[in-house]
Design a protein around this nucleic acid. Structure first.
Length: 491
RNA sequence: CGGGGAGUAGCGCAGGCCGGUAGCGCAUCUGGUUUGGGACCAGGGGGUCGCAGGUUCGAAUCCUGUCUCCCCGACCA
């Protein structure tokens, strides 16, 4: 089945099968929750390490806050409750007991909590209630803290990685003395996310800000990066929020400034989640399986020996393969020599393609005679004979090329699926037949935005940063507009 | 909560209308031959047919009830 021509439900099925078959994750016994399997978690660990490096390089530190939030905390910021109230898991009791009427256990009605606890859907409230105690003076600022955690959002419908009831993420929460500094932080983190996606995940993104409708609950401004999937739907890959003084006011967090005046603190929060793994899969894979950018791939190279009956030849292949493995490992390449004699080469080829290993080296008797190895790259599926001399360096160069090629390919796909339209007819036609981002004039009102969503299910993904200002007419209402915004169907 | 669909071996499914020894593919185990794109041959193991009632000499199959899961919509990183 081809990805590009398949219908939406087929694509969903294809994605689901791929995640399962590649061994990334599976559904758990718990509604809407996901088991991340070792191979999927290895991707997350690599992303985590890389992001952590970038966070620390910009002065951030990690900390950890409780998973439970007292109900009263959540109600302190009005817009915030409004946004999250409908999807919260609530702890009401703290004890079970044996069912007096039969087998099993029941919730002990005696053990009702005085105040219910919310399983965090995000941590702004518990963190700002803590920051109140951390901040007295301008000397306590800024606070630049990140947390790696799980959160729970009781969504109606879930999909592996893209939307699960519980998911893993990082959430940064910073506190600043001035508005300018907070906005600079918000933008800095957006830029870190964008470069991380592009350089590390080979995933081109568009930076922008959300409209009021799509803004994070409690934010003054939500910055985002939007990526394009191979079915023409957009994926929000990360967000960075300028929270203004909303949370400082809600939790009464003030500091004495240099003039000894009391001021409310300025806040930001920013996060990316395991959803990015879903994005990685949907942006790069093909019908043979995953295609992983080398930088994130748990395994860069797999060496597959091709044996025959001759034991002496087998020994020579083994020796050569191990030599190559050592040379690559010495240069920091993650490599596996799969000499498992119970699986045949064809089976291994298919298996490692499914797993998305960027480079495969096949080594058989025929190759040894010619002093070559067969090198197959996962992104293009090209197979080439490489000399055994200097093979390690050639492979390292190839890995770089694959990383670059994957980014370029995703970028041209994205650019080909970004269409400027100037009429409603064109808008509907493009959305229906081509998908992708649609750049169109919008009159700037929430009503028009909502109407377009109602009519087409497309939403405004973002108003691109540094957007060109131009006179135009709203694609739906014909009212005057000053700029184009990006619409798309979204995950 | 509205509209569809499905529960049969570890996984994927057939059988059901028309009741009569519970099957197929994959996986698994044993033996052998193999190894340049998911090998082949032979043999073996594995089941309260979601659950509870009912009809019947006899129920995976018919009837009644019930539970669960999946897909579509509302919600969404």
């Amino acid at each position: 089945m081809s990805i590009l021509t398949s219908k939406e439900t087929d694509y969903a099925q294809w994605y689901n099968d791929l995640v399962l078959k590649a061994g990334l994750a599976e559904n758990s016994a718990v509604r809407g929750c996901m088991v991340i399997k070792p191979y999927g978690f290895a991707l997350w660990e690599n992303m985590r390490d890389e992001l952590d490096k970038r966070f620390k390089a910009t002065g951030h530190q990690n900390a950890y806050f409780p998973i439970f939030i007292p109900k009263s905390f959540l109600s302190k910021e009005a817009a915030h409750v409004e946004g999250f109230a409908k999807e919260c898991a609530v702890v009401t009791h703290y004890r079970l007991k044996n069912d007096p009427n039969g087998k099993g256990v029941i919730v002990d009605p005696e053990a009702k909590l005085e105040e219910e606890l919310i399983v965090r859907p995000t941590s702004e409230t518990i963190i700002w209630s803590t920051y109140k105690n951390w901040i007295q003076s301008y000397r306590d600022l800024p606070i630049l803290v990140n947390q790696w955690a799980n959160v729970v959002r009781w969504e109606m419908r879930t999909r592996l990685f893209l939307r699960t009831t519980e998911f893993l993420w990082q959430e940064g929460h910073t506190a600043h003395a001035t508005k300018e500094e907070a906005i600079a932080e918000t933008e800095q983190m957006l830029n870190i996310y964008a470069s991380f996606c592009e350089e590390y995940m080979a995933l081109p993104v568009i930076k922008g800000v959300k409209t009021a409708n799509e803004r994070f609950a409690g934010a003054e401004e939500t910055y985002c990066i939007e990526a394009m999937m191979q079915d023409g739907k957009a994926l929000q890959a990360g967000t960075s929020h300028f929270l203004g003084q909303n949370f400082a006011k809600a939790f009464d967090v003030k500091f004495a400034d240099k003039d000894n005046k009391m001021e409310y603190v300025w806040a930001t929060s920013w996060g990316v989640s395991t959803r990015l793994i879903g994005g990685l899969v949907m942006a790069h894979s093909d019908d043979a399986g995953l295609i992983l950018p080398p930088k994130i791939a748990p395994l860069h190279v797999v060496i597959v020996p091709i044996y025959n009956k001759d034991a002496a030849v087998k020994e020579r292949i083994d020796a050569k393969a191990r030599e190559l493995m050592k040379a690559l490992q010495a240069k920091g390449i993650r490599v596996k020599y799969d000499h498992d004699d119970t699986a045949r080469p064809g089976w291994k080829f298919a298996e490692y393609e499914l797993k998305g290993v960027p480079v495969r080296v096949a080594l058989g008797a025929r190759d040894l005679e010619n002093n070559v190895a067969e090198v197959a790259r996962r992104d293009t599926k090209e197979k080439t004979s490489y000399s055994l001399e200097g093979l390690d360096d050639a492979i390292i160069a190839l890995l770089d090329e694959i990383q670059q090629n994957m980014y370029n390919k995703a970028l041209s796909y994205r650019n080909e699926h970004l269409t400027e339209v100037n009429s409603w007819e064109e808008f509907e036609h493009t959305l229906k037949n081509k998908g992708g981002f649609i750049s169109a004039h919008w009159d700037g009102t929430p009503e028009t935005e909502a109407k377009i969503k109602e009519l087409t299910k497309a939403t405004i993904r973002c108003i691109p940063l540094h957007n060109k200002q131009e006179e135009g007419k709203c694609v739906l209402t014909g009212n005057p507009s000053t700029q184009r915004v990006l619409f798309a169907m979204a995950y």
